[in-house]
């Protein structure tokens, strides 16, 4: 998958819902089918964001998992370094991390967090929001 970044893959118009009963409970999120709701297209993007899917996790480094492969395969080297990563599904849903580094298709998080529990198929978003880190040297 390419960068989503609110570029909205497959920008399908919000057409009429198919006739028949609505299947509102069984549909999994589809990266290729983000449909704009009401006001969505009306405002500019506030911050750069890329959304994607985890395709592989690890390897484990000691007691922690620090990296994963993504469905996004065209990141610039360290393009999202220091950005905020938030997991959007699975065991780590809602857990924020800070990106330590990235390659074209891999993201590494800082030592403050472990991605233990992340599995292929989990969803994530990286956002250009920086976290202040204070290093106190004594």
């Amino acid at each position: 998958m390419n960068k989503l970044g609110i570029v909205l893959l497959g920008m399908l118009a919000a057409g009429p819902v198919a006739a028949g009963p609505l299947d509102i409970f069984g549909t999994a999120p589809s990266e290729a089918r983000v449909i704009l709701a009401g006001h969505d297209a009306d405002v500019p993007e506030v911050i750069p964001r890329y959304s994607g899917t985890v395709t592989a996790v690890g390897p484990k480094e000691g007691e922690r998992v620090a990296s994963f492969k993504t469905s996004i395969t065209d990141f610039e080297l360290n393009e999202v370094k220091s950005w905020r990563l938030t997991i959007l599904s699975g065991e780590l849903l809602g857990t924020p991390f800070v990106v330590l580094a990235n390659t074209a298709d891999e993201i590494v998080v800082t030592e403050e967090g472990s991605l233990d529990g992340l599995v292929p198929g989990d969803l994530f978003v990286v956002e250009q929001i920086f976290t202040r880190r204070i290093i106190r040297i004594q």
Binding site: P96, V98, E112, I129, F130, T131, R133, I135, I137, Q138
Partner: peptide
Amino acid sequence: RAALALSLAVL
């Protein structure tokens, strides 16, 4: 030397 890393505010 000891290092103290704090994540603040935004998170």
